[in-house]
Design a protein around this nucleic acid. Sequence first.
DNA 1: GTGGTCTAGACCACA
DNA 2: GTGGTCTAGACCACG
Lengths: 143, 143, 143, 143
Amino acid sequence: MPVDPHSHVPIYEQIVEHIHGRITAGVFRPDEPLPSIRALAIELLVNPNTVQRAYQELERQGVAYTQKGLGVFVAANGAISARSMSEASVCERFEQGIDLARAAGLGDPTIRRLFDRSLHEVRETSSRHSTNGPSLPGEEASS
Amino acid sequence: MPVDPHSHVPIYEQIVEHIHGRITAGVFRPDEPLPSIRALAIELLVNPNTVQRAYQELERQGVAYTQKGLGVFVAANGAISARSMSEASVCERFEQGIDLARAAGLGDPTIRRLFDRSLHEVRETSSRHSTNGPSLPGEEASS
Amino acid sequence: MPVDPHSHVPIYEQIVEHIHGRITAGVFRPDEPLPSIRALAIELLVNPNTVQRAYQELERQGVAYTQKGLGVFVAANGAISARSMSEASVCERFEQGIDLARAAGLGDPTIRRLFDRSLHEVRETSSRHSTNGPSLPGEEASS
Amino acid sequence: MPVDPHSHVPIYEQIVEHIHGRITAGVFRPDEPLPSIRALAIELLVNPNTVQRAYQELERQGVAYTQKGLGVFVAANGAISARSMSEASVCERFEQGIDLARAAGLGDPTIRRLFDRSLHEVRETSSRHSTNGPSLPGEEASS
DNA sequence: GTGGTCTAGACCACA
DNA sequence: GTGGTCTAGACCACG
């Protein structure tokens, strides 16, 4: 369930982040095709239009390009863009949390404690898309 | 800018989190009044209706109660509720970020690095509404 | 009939160009609201979704900005952007025509003759949206 | 790049216009064969199906005819038809541009200025398929 | 009332 | 089969 229809963040944007992640994880590689709009729509149990909007956004970002009648492909520098955008998404969440914590008067030690707790909790719940193993290309040991 | 109109999280929910924070930080104390709807609306540059909806939500949560004609007050146990809800909000953001990072195949060291970067970046940008000093009652020394 | 459903250029893009033109012509001015999505949809006899897509594109271009619950407004520098984009659209058409003409082996004198003919023909048919009179602000005597 | 996959005008139609131009320019002459579907598909970096559709359209227009097993040939009066259609295509673009300009409140002097700019810009970029010199049969001295 | 998102289902151009 | 566009109609957040 990589998309949550009850989240406040729009589904199409969740899909964009999802694809960013898959590219960053090396699942989708430059000049290889992304799943077809219809196929991904079925996989994610959403409407094709929603996937299309996500793909359109990816194209606008320069992460993907479209070949009429053939499909949507990862751009040559798509992996780089996707990685930086993935990190941006992650940091955005972190910063939101930190802002909230600071506004509540929490100090750095407390914030770190909350973060560590989250890190461990997610580890257990993390039987999600376990695409991440120790032997995937292009991750771990990054900037 | 305690409220971001471009965020995907509804404004009234941002206001709720904002109040949680102020209560947790000891700015608003049990049985003391919250700012009037009108005043807060002006302070946050938001429509009064939106503030009202937030106050309704706070009342539903048991964090505040209304005295007709007098205003909205922090509930007796409001500080405790607010604190746990603030932490929950913070952790929610952290977990979202961690989920995203894991989905992108990033490992714990990388994730920690991103978190540290966020922690320092926010520190600099953090010339926000620092109504709260480091030594207010009820913070530092979390559960 | 500012939009032609039979054109090859998508309706939403026609709407974008249409708005560019209206802004350039001074009909819509900075910080004033554009017609509501629903209203323009009715006026143009298209689906509100189509108008919305156009407005979204205008926002992406920096020509307009959205205020939730209030409407879509012309951006401060929207007039400038719109003007340059209008001119770009015009020149794009001209260049396409010139390309075609050159590819057909036509020389500049012939091309000019065709252009003049078009200029005069359009003048007669031009009982379209005659928003343009001799006394409108901001046009005639441009770069 | 005689064919632009990003254009809104369908590729097969671009090919039709392209052939019109080649015929008008005297590159393809009446009762002589057009390039084979396969060859043109390769030259234009396009799918053979698309070329075939263009050839069908040319046949429908009376500009070309098919001899089974031999190929597609320029019709006897193909040069005349092609020329008028080429000019029509050119003028269509010009009129579109003029319409846009008028809708934006631009006056004839401004429009002419934009046209002249386009005429000069295209001249420089015009290191295209200059298979045609200035002195080919059937051009210069238009109707 | 405003805009923003989503769904369902249709038609077209292209491979 | 692919993506691109459009419609009709729904629900939500906001004013």
